[in-house]
């Protein structure tokens, strides 16, 4: 049945589009996990800040939307960097007197940071939904059977470009190689003369910037509110576990997979519970293959 085939193509493409935005968010979280073995529960708020930075830069400051993207990227980077400087340092800068273990410290501090940022934005900017202007003002394009707004098309291209650029950066650049070295063996890397603290700083900055960019790209599609980050953040946690806690290719594949799965599941299983699919899979994976789909058996450091 041709109608069915068109529908399936549409669902697949829609899934890939959503998956690309998930990936942009999840890479940063994966990097932090890979490096520090902690989860940043304020990651969704980096995304929220990006969406606001883009929208307010365009609507309040009158900047061009194309400047809005780097602005959001930079603001997210700064927030990530500040988080690392003020809150994450004690994790590895030799605070000897730990009453509690560091995993717990990270959970509580990032969770509280998330509450703080949401409520701060709610008070300062207000609870009303704002929608960012699109990168181009084309309300509808047809690409074969697929229909989408001009903005969504461009945003998806930017998202894929950034994912590839980040992957190349981690793989080939000097900083990227240092990051991987620290992630593999913090002690060994520092013996080889790599500054682990600086590496953590880079990771947090990059992670904040990518999440913020993801928020900025989606700002014209979603209606941004202070709690907009909690939803994509939860998806990112799922992706990080699914992709094998710390594996970048794993998280990219898992993001696209989740996007497509949700898209098809919504139509063929149940629309009402589609946001629960990923979460149900998370619990299954933890049950059957805790190292994730792409991860190796956990290394004890």
């Amino acid at each position: 049945m041709p109608g069915q085939r068109v529908l399936n193509i549409d669902l697949f493409v829609n899934g890939l589009i959503m998956g690309s935005f998930y990936a942009l968010m999840a890479i940063g979280l994966t990097l932090i996990f890979g490096l520090l073995r902690i989860v940043n529960f304020a990651h969704g708020e980096f995304y929220m800040i990006g969406a606001y930075a883009y929208t307010l830069a365009a609507l309040k400051l009158g900047l061009s939307v194309w400047l809005g993207l780097p602005v959001a990227f930079a603001v997210g980077g700064i927030v990530g960097w500040l988080t690392e400087r003020t809150l994450m340092r004690p994790l590895y800068a030799g605070y000897a007197s730990w009453g509690l273990m560091k995993d717990e410290y990270a959970v509580v501090v990032t969770f509280a940071l998330s509450l703080l940022l949401i409520n701060l934005v709610d008070k300062v900017i207000g609870p009303y939904a704002v929608r960012g202007p699109g990168l181009v003002d084309i309300p509808r394009i047809a690409l074969g059977p697929v229909m989408l707004t001009g903005h969504k098309l461009i945003a998806t291209i930017v998202a894929f470009a950034m994912i590839i650029a980040t992957a190349l950066f981690i793989r080939y650049s000097l900083w990227g190689r240092q990051i991987r070295a620290v992630a593999q063996n913090r002690l060994g890397a520092s013996l080889a003369g790599i500054d682990a603290t600086k590496t953590s700083s880079i990771i947090f900055t990059l992670s904040g910037a990518l999440a913020a960019l993801s928020g900025a790209l989606l700002a014209p599609i979603i209606n941004t509110t202070p709690d907009v980050g909690s939803f994509p953040a939860i998806k990112s946690y799922v992706i990080v576990v699914l992709g094998g806690m710390g594996s970048i290719p794993g998280s990219i594949v898992a993001s696209l997979l989740l996007g497509v799965l949700e898209s098809f599941g919504a139509v063929y299983i149940s629309y009402d519970y589609r946001d629960a699919f990923g979460l149900a899979i998370l619990i299954l994976v933890l049950l059957l293959r805790p190292q994730g789909l792409f991860g190796e058996k956990g290394r004890e450091v």
């Binding site: 959970v107 939860i234 946690y237 629960a276 979460l279 619990i283 933890l286 805790p290």
Partner: peptide
């Protein structure tokens, strides 16, 4: 029983996801 076999931040992640599933259901 599912999650306590694991160490690290798995419990926080799983309970957060679980909270979200319950909200949806």
């Amino acid at each position: 029983r599912i999650v306590m076999r694991l160490r690290g931040p798995y419990l926080a992640l799983t309970t957060l996801s679980f909270a979200e599933i319950m909200r949806i259901v």
